[in-house]
Design a protein around this nucleic acid. Sequence first.
DNA 1: CGCGTTTACGTCGTTCGTAACGATA
DNA 2: TATCGTTACGAACGACGTAAACGCG
Lengths: 327, 327
Amino acid sequence: MTLNQLRYLAAIADSGLNITLAAERVHATQPGLSRQIKHLEDELGFLLFTRKGRSLTALTQAGEHVLVHARRLLDEAGNIRALAANQRGERQGRLTLVTTHTQARYVLPAAIAATRREFPGVSIRLHPSDEGEILARLAREGDDLAVISTSGAVPAAGVAVPLFRWRRVVLVPSAHVLARRRQPPGLRQLSAWPLVSYESSRKPESSLRRAFDAAKLPLQLAMTAHDADLIKTYVRAGVGVGILAEMAVSPEDADLRALPAPDALPECITWAVLPRGRVLRDYAVRLLRELAAQIDALDLRRAVAGNAEPAWPAPPAWSNPRRLRSA
Amino acid sequence: MTLNQLRYLAAIADSGLNITLAAERVHATQPGLSRQIKHLEDELGFLLFTRKGRSLTALTQAGEHVLVHARRLLDEAGNIRALAANQRGERQGRLTLVTTHTQARYVLPAAIAATRREFPGVSIRLHPSDEGEILARLAREGDDLAVISTSGAVPAAGVAVPLFRWRRVVLVPSAHVLARRRQPPGLRQLSAWPLVSYESSRKPESSLRRAFDAAKLPLQLAMTAHDADLIKTYVRAGVGVGILAEMAVSPEDADLRALPAPDALPECITWAVLPRGRVLRDYAVRLLRELAAQIDALDLRRAVAGNAEPAWPAPPAWSNPRRLRSA
DNA sequence: CGCGTTTACGTCGTTCGTAACGATA
DNA sequence: TATCGTTACGAACGACGTAAACGCG
């Protein structure tokens, strides 16, 4: 049993049992993988794959079990390499984040830019994903970091670190009736308008939906979109009143008016979710501290290592200066 | 980075930084280890050990970190091998248990005998240890299984599986005054006598001590010992009244009388504690099911794998037939 | 001078890539 | 016939053990 054999096993499993494809991905030749898998099967004493003719059709049940442990083993090998890279002061690397469009578009740019300025050799991969898909993807694809928002609840997967608090805003064209009122609109006023908001508002457990339900008011969702830019576009087109994250309002939106959302819409928290047990590269810590200065780097490392989850400092409210400071 | 390099690293750390000793333990030569460690250091880019002249003086801080992950990695390699051995129907192997003298002497023999009858090729290593030391040893030495008793509390480390319930008995010579009474003695009666019990009764948090404290009665511990045989010996010698586990009373003790302990002494539970995440060999499951037939093998495997801790079935009361059935 | 580590050297085993072959849809 | 996996072959590398040299107490 060698690290390479297990690496090949995982690569084949991740390539839909296509050895040729797996070989490319691990920068080796197809006969090499074929042979090493055979050697591994010989050593373990049973088949890892079921075969039909010469091609692989599935993992055997035993193979599935082996794969689970092989992945953990390879993760630890990766941890040792990450540890070593940090120790050497290695400034190159890769960082894969998975997050929503709003975070990717309005929150992360400044933080990523700052991180890249300090670590120009780091290649950052951003995977926008649907709210509900993000945590699944983090676990499945082995991404380094997820950034998601909840209205209070602590995300279940991995190590969740609260970054900042934010509120929603009501976005309307400057000439809109709601923009002329003295007071920002209440839930009752909003319920009279068709709304434009995030796709996730359609889910019955969304906080928008729950707020209207609790007030026994009807919620008219004129349309929903995955990203804030689309919401703004349709607000401009007069399709409805926008409800979106305050972070998504930028200076270029001077033709729109952002009004505070009703108190009935609860405050949200943006979290970083990290895979438990993975050693963080220095630049990952740097990025997180850029997003949330209140976080202690050592606490973070310890929490991810699984030793002790600290009482995280209370996340501050989102502030635009944060964006400007590093822009 | 190879599995062998990490194995050597762990072996050296476990051998007090003596490479020669470590080499013997891993069945390799000393120059081989020396070289591989150097290669590993070259690849990682920093020293794993601090050196004074030619000999190793300590792990570097980075080396400590690497070691942590290396051990986890090696554990997973062991899991894959265990998985494979089970899959092959391999009937040989090793099982290291750590437990108290009473369990080792009175509870485990029948179960171990039964297991050995079914798996004659399995070598079982029994490490009697002090009550307080057991869980520490399980974590430190990487033993396979701990068997310990508590008066109710769930052991904190690893996966704890309740095996059976038991009570204490009051053990006196047949001619003793307490043996002539109609009723078994209460706490008040016992407090009039010097007692002979386990070493662990000396600790202020022991349930014996707590029972007497709660009743505001004095506890005279005439003597304490680590094992039940010694307690019996001193009871025979008239040193005092024995308080010990009901399992420790055997037919050869016909010259003694075992009386039910006062209700104020709470029932105890004997637990198996398994290192979380370790794949169990079939014979380990067999042994545990011999100790506690109510346990489902699949539940057990799943719980140890860390997937889902089931609601364990209520442990039955200890019964002597259990011992006789398999004797 | 003994103990433990490092260096030197030769051998052996293993892995790897290339190329040819085989099977399958 | 194209695609994918297996087998065959040869080269290169790397790990290992033996033996000798080196430092330190």
